[in-house]
Computed example of a mutant assay.
Amino acid sequence: MRKTALFAALSVTGALLSGCGTAERLSRIGRAPDMAPIADPTRDPNYRPVSMPMPAPQDARNLSANSLWRPGSRTFLRDQRASAVGDIITILVSIRDQAELQNTSERSRENSESMGIPRILGLDSSYARFFPQGFDPSRMIEANSNNGSQGTGRIRRNEAVTMRVAGTVTQVLPNGNLVVTGRQQVRVNHEMRDMQLTGIIRPQDIASDNTVQHDRLAEARISYGGRGTVSDVQQPRYGQQILDAILPF
Score class of each variant (00 low, 15 high):
residue 5 A to K: 02
residue 10 L to W: 05
residue 13 T to H: 06
residue 17 L to K: 01
residue 20 C to N: 13
residue 23 A to F: 00
residue 30 G to K: 02
residue 31 R to F: 06
residue 31 R to Q: 05
residue 38 I to K: 03
residue 41 P to M: 01
residue 46 N to L: 14
residue 52 M to P: 03
residue 52 M to I: 08
residue 56 A to D: 10
residue 56 A to Y: 04
residue 58 Q to F: 08
residue 61 R to M: 13
residue 62 N to E: 15
residue 62 N to D: 15
residue 64 S to L: 10
residue 65 A to I: 05
residue 69 W to F: 13
residue 77 L to S: 11
residue 79 D to T: 04
residue 85 V to R: 10
residue 87 D to T: 11
residue 87 D to H: 00
residue 89 I to F: 00
residue 91 I to W: 01
residue 93 V to H: 01
residue 95 I to W: 04
residue 100 E to S: 07
residue 102 Q to K: 12
residue 104 T to C: 07
residue 106 E to P: 09
residue 108 S to W: 12
residue 109 R to K: 10
residue 110 E to H: 08
residue 110 E to Q: 11
residue 112 S to K: 03
residue 113 E to D: 15
residue 121 L to D: 15
residue 130 F to D: 11
residue 143 A to G: 11
residue 144 N to S: 15
residue 154 R to Y: 01
residue 155 I to M: 08
residue 157 R to E: 13
residue 157 R to G: 12
residue 159 E to G: 12
residue 160 A to F: 07
residue 166 A to D: 05
residue 180 V to G: 05
residue 190 H to Q: 11
residue 192 M to T: 05
residue 199 G to I: 01
residue 202 R to M: 00
residue 204 Q to A: 09
residue 208 S to F: 11
residue 210 N to S: 03
residue 210 N to R: 02
residue 212 V to K: 01
residue 218 A to L: 15
residue 218 A to H: 13
residue 219 E to R: 07
residue 224 Y to A: 11
residue 224 Y to V: 13
residue 227 R to W: 02
residue 234 Q to P: 07
residue 238 Y to I: 10
residue 239 G to M: 01
residue 241 Q to D: 06
residue 243 L to T: 09
residue 244 D to Y: 07
residue 244 D to W: 05
residue 244 D to E: 12
residue 248 P to V: 13
residue 249 F to V: 07
residue 249 F to C: 10
